[in-house]
């Protein structure tokens, strides 16, 4: 093996990983008595090339994209935010409160306020671990992880208690006013404008991290905190800033679930979007692309394909591990395509 060949294989390692995942997957598909090509065809076809399928892909992409940003940004400052799920829930709660209980006003203004409230909720929820990390040295991974469950249960309490719609069969709040619903971008599918906001934010964050002193200070803290202090950067302030911005992004994701999909605050409304965000952020985070947020988009679309196939193909039932492997692999595949 020449060094160049080794370098080539290394550079394209994600592709090989995906190929191996596909091959392993097809073995299982064959074992289940189905044609792998047909299965893969339906997987990609449904998610990308079918109007309704693509619409639903976008619906799922919105919270996961924002949750991925919520992981990627604090990671720049060296912090691992695994609390996206909790921040999504608290964001949704804040949004629902503003949407339901703030007296009605101009529809657009109210919508913006409700969304901002969601971001604020997520940011405040992230402030708890940020403060404990910066001033008490408590590991942010543990605190954010555990606060997820607190956040989930607070929403369960609200949706099943004080905010519950009278006579509802299931813990959910009353419906928010119609003029607060996010515009649909691919009617009649459920795809809503939240995806576009997420995309714009991804690009803005990339520019912020790449070209501003703000991003430079944050990245320096993540690269070498001791040198950052020496450079006159307040490490504590940067940590709190990064975590709160992350929380705000995840909170916005939760907010859009209320404003764009459910139109109510549901008990247990997120299917682990916050955790999917971690996987996406790590798959797409590459030292070369400082905040490679833009890459999340197709990555998640591909990953989402796994879910689709799982739902639509008769063979997938009871074979979760396979789909899990596959969806991870496809994330990587999409990442590679964009990168090269």
């Amino acid at each position: 093996m020449t060094p160049r060949l080794i370098a080539f294989i290394f550079a394209t390692r994600t592709i090989w990983a995906v190929l191996i995942a596909l091959i392993l997957g097809s073995l299982m598909i064959v074992a289940a008595g189905t044609d792998p090509l047909a299965a893969y065809g339906s997987l990609f076809g449904e998610a990308f090339f079918d109007y309704y399928g693509f619409g639903s892909t976008l619906v799922k992409m919105s919270p996961i994209l924002l949750a991925a940003l919520a992981v990627a940004l604090p990671l720049r400052a060296g912090l691992f935010n695994v609390g996206g799920e909790g921040q999504i829930y608290i964001g949704a709660l804040f949004t629902a409160i503003v949407a339901l209980y703030v007296p009605s006003m101009n529809g657009t203004l109210h919508l913006v306020l409700a969304a901002l409230a969601g971001a604020l909720g997520g940011a405040l929820w992230a402030l708890i671990p940020a403060y404990l990390k910066a001033y008490r040295g408590i590991n942010e991974v543990i605190v954010t992880l555990l606060l997820n469950y607190v956040g989930i249960h607070i929403v369960s309490y609200a949706a099943g208690g004080p905010m519950m719609e009278p006579g509802a069969p299931y813990p959910y709040s009353p419906e928010i006013p119609k003029d607060l619903w996010l515009p649909l971008i691919m009617p009649p599918t459920d795809a809503h404008a939240g995806v576009l906001v997420g995309l714009v934010l991804a690009v803005l964050l990339y520019l912020l991290m790449r070209f501003t002193t703000f991003g430079f200070a944050m990245t320096t803290v993540g690269s070498n905190a001791s040198a950052a202090r020496y450079a006159g950067i307040s490490v504590r302030r940067q940590m709190i800033r990064a975590m709160m911005m992350g929380g705000a992004l995840a909170g916005l994701g939760g907010s859009f679930e209320v404003l764009g999909v459910k139109y109510r605050l549901f008990h247990l409304f997120s299917n682990g979007y916050g955790f999917d965000g971690i996987v996406v952020a790590f798959k797409c985070d590459h030292p070369c692309c400082s905040c490679s947020c833009v890459l999340f988009v197709p990555a998640r679309v591909a990953s989402n394909a796994g879910d689709f196939c799982e739902r639509h193909s008769s063979l997938a039932h009871g074979e979760f591990p396979f789909w899990n492997v596959f969806s991870l692999g496809s994330v990587g595949l999409a990442t590679c395509c964009v990168r090269t």
């Binding site: 070209f211 501003t212 002193t213 703000f214 430079f216 200070a217 320096t220 690269s223 070498n224 001791s226 040198a227 950052a228 202090r229 020496y230 450079a231 006159g232 030292p287």
Partner: peptide
């Protein structure tokens, strides 16, 4: 402490001055 080893030489040379002109203006590097 003195350097961020993963940063390029050029950035390390402004590590302690990045917030001042002429290294950056109005927050833009």
């Amino acid at each position: 402490t003195g350097l961020v080893l993963d940063y390029p030489v050029a950035t390390n040379l402004i590590l302690r001055d990045f917030e001042q002109s002429p290294c950056s203006r109005r927050g833009l590097m």
